[in-house]
Design a protein around this nucleic acid. Structure first.
Length: 364
DNA sequence: TAGCCGTGGGT
DNA sequence: TACCCAAGGCT
């Protein structure tokens, strides 16, 4: 079915001139964006809100002002700075990518989608976004915002994620002849501020007269999506050992997989089969050290992408001078904020320690 | 290719 | 409360 009128890229760019968001990584009007900042922001913004990424972006830019300083850092330092932002493979790939840009490209980001796509952590979206925003290349940038805008413009009945190829094809037909970077950002700003998931502000949209979903009366019902499968609940036990001098026992997780390379409070296995109503002795069976473990009331709950985790939190005191078991280490409680601790373990620690667990320092 | 991979905010 | 959602990539 044809659109009421053809969507005009010039109309969107005119809207963008007036309504573009001011963002920490975005260049001023007319100025070119630094590829390093564009790349860093794009990695952080993968499946992450602008609000959440903002403080992390400023913190990273302060500590690593250029790609050389980032490549020269240790992975552990990068993970510590990333802790709390989630999807930790992004941080590992960020570090690997910085090194790759130094080795393959002499420290300057390539300007072609193909070369960008070959870098760690850079997929089809991010390669197109960097090519368009940092180098003004005519790349088709398709993120969740663009999928929603295009689905509504054309009233696509095919559900996501299967409709992605069709959406990409249609998105390419909307492209302007110049200002490719502005156009990509305009599409995303439109999706983030006007063509929103729940209550789109069609009256303010520069493409309202071209939107088939709007002409049909229910734009908020697009994009269609295939139903998601339910999230199972897994159970486990977290062990918070506190030495007489106030140090807490931590371990480091395996380099890859869930929360890979991050620190943790020792926990037993996570499984749907673990019974948190079992006797204390059974719960303490996987404890990292022998002690008088006692159970704290309630559980610490954390929601991952594909499962819910409920942790019983056991606490114990260890005598002064206690040696850490193999693979573990004692960390002063006041320095836990500096550790590469994912949120699930901060929750477990907060459950056991209460106010003695200080929040992480805000970015300066 | 579909499952794996975090987190916080909004409704 | 229980969902949904956010500038996706990797295997």
């Amino acid at each position: 079915m044809a659109l009421p009128v053809a969507p005009d890229p010039t109309a969107l760019l005119a809207w963008y001139n007036r309504h573009r968001r001011k963002l920490p990584w975005r260049a001023e009007r007319g100025a070119s964006a630094e590829p390093y900042r564009v790349w860093l922001s794009e990695i952080m913004l993968q499946q992450t809100t602008v609000k959440a990424a903002g403080p992390y972006f400023l913190r990273f830019l302060q500590r690593f002002p250029d790609i050389q300083s980032l490549a020269a850092a240790s992975l552990d330092e990068v993970l510590k700075l990333w802790a709390g932002l989630g999807y930790y493979s992004r941080a590992r790939n960020l570090h690997a990518c910085a090194k790759a840009v130094l080795e393959r490209h002499g420290g300057r980001f390539p300007d072609s989608e193909a070369a960008l796509l070959a870098l760690p952590g850079v997929g089809p979206y991010t390669a197109a976004a960097i090519a368009a925003i940092a180098f003004d290349r005519p790349a088709t940038v398709v993120d969740g915002n663009v999928e929603r805008v295009v689905s509504r413009l054309f009233a696509l009945e095919a559900p996501l994620p299967g409709a992605k190829p069709e959406i990409r094809r249609l998105a390419a037909t909307l492209a302007p002849v110049s200002r490719h970077g502005d156009f990509a950002q305009a599409m995303m700003d439109l999706g983030a501020t006007i063509c929103t998931p729940r209550k789109p502000a069609c009256a303010l949209c520069p493409w309202s007269d071209a939107c088939l979903a709007r002409s049909q009366g229910a734009p908020e019902t697009y994009p269609r999506k295939t139903p998601k499968t339910a999230r199972p609940t897994r159970y486990g036990v977290a062990f918070v050992a506190e030495r007489a001098d106030g140090a807490i026992l931590l371990r480091d997780r395996p380099a890859k997989g869930l929360l890979g390379g991050m620190a943790e409070t020792p926990t037993g296995r996570w499984s749907e089969d673990v019974d948190l109503s079992a006797p204390l002795a059974a719960l303490a069976a996987e404890a990292p050290l022998a002690a008088a473990w006692r159970r704290t009331p309630g559980v610490a709950t954390h929601v991952f992408t594909h499962f819910v985790l409920e942790l019983a939190v056991l606490v114990a005191s260890a005598p002064a001078g206690s040696q850490a078991p193999s693979g573990a280490r004692w960390v002063p409680v006041e320095r836990l904020g500096e550790e590469a601790l994912p949120t699930v373990f901060r929750k477990a620690l907060a459950h056991a320690l209460g106010d003695r667990l200080r929040p992480r320092a805000p970015p300066t």
